[in-house]
């Protein structure tokens, strides 16, 4: 039996909106530590790993594991019926075939209830090995999103080079090429604009910008983003949540 309450429906609404474009049917595994979702996009280029810890909920109970098999777009559609500041409760009996969502306004004189039909989804799970990343960059999520959007005007691919001088994003296409370089910096006024680079060795990887723009939709969830890269391996891109994270594993492009 799962019963989880959020003080503001917006906390879940914006997470689901951020990941819905990449995912379809997926299983949300619920247990006493919280809700977890791991799902590949249909092209197997990006793996989304979401964790919502139980302490992020105002009330949380899940005495036995519950798997919520659903289409993420259906969940997004139902969540659209909730006001951002509604109190949201998720409820599902063990082995139930429905997820009950209730939305209450703070004065509790309006309560909506939606029952989302659940499905049996036999989803493949990928084992993500612990990886020592050569480079870790913590930067403003909005600045990353903006930098990549600018370069997507030039090309469908971006090359990211990280060395001790900083991090360079570059793209080259028919109309020309462009690049943006950030030096490591500490911004005392607002820390989120700092660029923090931890490097064991320089690394350069290229990625598809369409998928990257889907990933950076999560910029609304966290003021900073952590990019982790190592030669020849998928990048790990993480947006921290108050009690959990939205993490993406992103396969690179290589020179043919």
């Amino acid at each position: 039996m799962l019963e989880a309450k959020l003080d503001a429906a917006s906390q879940l609404k914006k997470i689901v909106e951020a990941i819905r474009d990449m995912l379809g049917e997926c299983n949300i595994e619920c247990n006493e530590t919280g809700l977890a979702l791991q799902s590949l996009d249909k092209s197997h280029i990006v793996l989304v790993s979401l964790l919502l810890g139980s302490d992020g909920f105002s009330e949380y109970r899940c005495d036995r594991g519950v798997t919520l098999g659903l289409n993420i777009n259906s969940l997004a559609t139902v969540l659209r019926c909730a006001n951002n500041d509604d109190i949201l409760t998720l409820r599902s009996e063990d082995r139930a075939n429905e997820l009950i969502l209730t939305f209450e306004d703070s004065k509790a004189d309006r309560i909506s209830e939606f029952n989302l039909r659940l499905m049996d989804i036999d989803q493949e799970y990928l084992a993500i090995p612990e990886t020592e990343y050569a480079a870790t960059v913590v930067m403003s999520a909005a600045v990353l999103q903006r930098t990549l959007r600018d370069l997507s005007a030039l090309s469908e691919a971006v090359t990211i080079e990280i060395d001790k001088e900083g991090i360079r994003f570059s793209a080259e296409g028919d109309l020309g090429k462009g690049s943006t370089h950030f030096k490591p910096c500490v911004d005392m006024e607002n820390a989120e604009n700092s660029i923090n680079i931890t490097l064991s060795e320089p690394v350069s990887l290229s990625f598809n910008l369409q998928y990257f723009s889907n990933i950076t939709k999560a910029s609304s969830l966290s003021s900073t983003v952590t990019l982790q890269m190592t030669a020849g391996m998928p990048a790990q891109i993480e947006y921290k949540l108050p009690s959990g994270h939205v993490r993406y594993y992103f396969a690179p492009k290589i020179e043919d």
């Binding site: 590949l40 092209s43 197997h44 280029i45 990006v46 793996l47 493949e124 799970y125 990928l126 084992a127 993500i128 090995p129 691919a157 290229s206 598809n208 391996m233 998928p234 594993y249 396969a251 690179p252 492009k253 290589i254 020179e255 043919d256």
Partner: peptide, 14 residues
């Protein structure tokens, strides 16, 4: 030309 890799060539499905 560049080739897009798939995660399947990095991560094993459990």
């Amino acid at each position: 030309a560049t080739k897009q890799l798939s995660l399947d060539s990095f991560y094993k499905s459990t």
